[in-house]
Lab assay of single mutants.
Amino acid sequence: LGPKYVGLWDFKSRTDEELSFRAGDVFHVARKEEQWWWATLLDEAGGAVAQGYVPHNYLAERE
């Protein structure tokens, strides 16, 4: 699936296409579209919880 990303700060969605998340949440990014990335929010087991657009500057690649 490629690298995983972690949320740096809490983010509250403003549209139906955006995905709310908390700092520390883990994502798989499917598409990078300039300022907004289409991402899947993952649970602790790595299963998909939700999908939506997230601001790229709120995520960091997980080491």
Rank of each mutant, 00 (worst) to 15 (best):
L1D: 12
L1Q: 13
L1R: 10
L1G: 12
L1I: 12
L1S: 12
G2S: 13
G2D: 11
G2N: 12
G2T: 13
G2C: 15
P3S: 10
P3F: 09
P3H: 10
P3G: 10
P3I: 13
K4I: 15
K4P: 06
K4D: 11
K4Y: 15
Y5R: 00
Y5Q: 01
Y5M: 02
Y5N: 00
Y5S: 00
V6F: 08
V6R: 03
V6E: 07
G7E: 03
G7R: 00
G7F: 07
L8F: 03
W9V: 09
W9H: 10
W9E: 07
W9S: 07
D10C: 10
D10T: 05
D10G: 04
D10A: 05
D10I: 07
D10S: 06
D10W: 07
F11P: 04
F11A: 01
F11W: 14
F11E: 04
F11R: 07
F11C: 08
F11G: 03
K12Q: 15
K12F: 13
K12P: 06
K12V: 15
K12E: 15
S13A: 15
S13M: 05
S13T: 03
S13H: 05
R14Y: 09
R14F: 09
R14H: 10
R14D: 11
T15P: 01
T15Y: 10
T15N: 13
T15M: 07
T15F: 10
T15D: 08
D16N: 12
D16C: 11
D16F: 09
D16H: 11
D16P: 14
D16L: 11
D16Q: 11
E17F: 12
E17T: 12
E17S: 13
E18W: 13
E18Q: 15
E18T: 11
E18H: 11
L19P: 01
L19M: 10
L19E: 02
L19F: 04
L19I: 11
L19G: 00
L19H: 01
S20Y: 05
S20F: 04
F21K: 00
F21I: 05
F21E: 00
F21G: 02
F21T: 01
F21A: 00
R22H: 11
R22Y: 10
R22D: 05
A23F: 03
A23L: 05
A23K: 12
A23S: 07
A23Q: 09
A23R: 11
G24N: 04
G24W: 03
G24I: 04
D25I: 08
D25A: 08
D25Q: 06
D25W: 05
D25L: 05
D25G: 05
V26M: 13
V26I: 14
V26A: 06
V26C: 08
V26W: 10
F27Y: 02
F27H: 00
F27V: 03
F27P: 01
H28D: 08
H28V: 14
H28T: 14
H28F: 14
V29F: 02
V29E: 01
V29C: 04
V29H: 02
A30E: 15
A30R: 08
R31Y: 12
R31I: 09
R31N: 07
R31H: 10
R31W: 14
K32N: 07
K32S: 07
K32T: 10
K32C: 08
K32H: 06
E33C: 15
E33N: 08
E34H: 10
E34D: 13
E34G: 15
E34M: 09
E34Q: 11
Q35H: 15
Q35C: 15
Q35V: 11
Q35D: 13
Q35M: 13
Q35F: 15
W36Q: 09
W36T: 04
W37E: 00
W37A: 03
W38A: 00
W38G: 00
W38E: 01
W38V: 06
W38H: 04
W38D: 00
A39G: 02
A39W: 04
A39Y: 03
A39M: 03
A39Q: 01
A39N: 00
A39S: 04
T40R: 03
T40Y: 13
T40A: 06
T40V: 15
T40E: 08
T40D: 03
L41T: 01
L41Q: 03
L41F: 02
L41A: 02
L41N: 01
L42T: 03
L42V: 07
L42D: 00
L42C: 07
L42G: 00
L42I: 08
D43P: 01
D43M: 03
D43N: 10
D43L: 05
D43G: 05
E44S: 12
E44G: 10
E44W: 08
E44C: 13
E44Q: 10
A45P: 02
A45C: 15
A45R: 13
A45Y: 14
A45W: 14
A45Q: 14
G46N: 06
G46R: 03
G46Q: 05
G46K: 03
G46M: 05
G46F: 07
G46S: 05
G46D: 08
G46C: 13
G47M: 14
G47V: 14
G47C: 14
G47E: 14
G47T: 13
G47F: 14
A48H: 08
A48I: 13
A48C: 09
A48E: 12
A48K: 07
A48W: 09
A48L: 09
V49S: 06
V49Y: 05
V49N: 04
V49P: 02
V49E: 03
V49I: 12
A50T: 07
Q51K: 06
Q51F: 08
Q51A: 11
Q51P: 01
Q51H: 12
Q51D: 08
G52S: 01
G52P: 01
G52N: 02
G52T: 00
G52E: 00
Y53C: 08
Y53I: 05
Y53M: 07
Y53A: 01
Y53S: 02
Y53E: 00
V54G: 01
V54P: 01
P55D: 06
P55Q: 03
P55W: 06
H56C: 15
H56M: 13
H56E: 11
H56F: 13
H56Y: 14
H56R: 13
H56N: 10
N57Y: 11
N57S: 09
N57V: 06
Y58L: 07
Y58F: 11
Y58V: 05
Y58S: 07
Y58K: 03
Y58W: 06
L59Y: 03
L59D: 04
L59G: 01
L59I: 05
L59E: 02
A60E: 13
A60M: 12
A60T: 12
A60K: 13
E61L: 15
E61T: 09
E61S: 09
E61W: 07
E61F: 09
E61N: 07
E61P: 14
R62F: 15
R62K: 14
E63H: 12
E63W: 11
E63K: 12
E63N: 12
E63C: 13
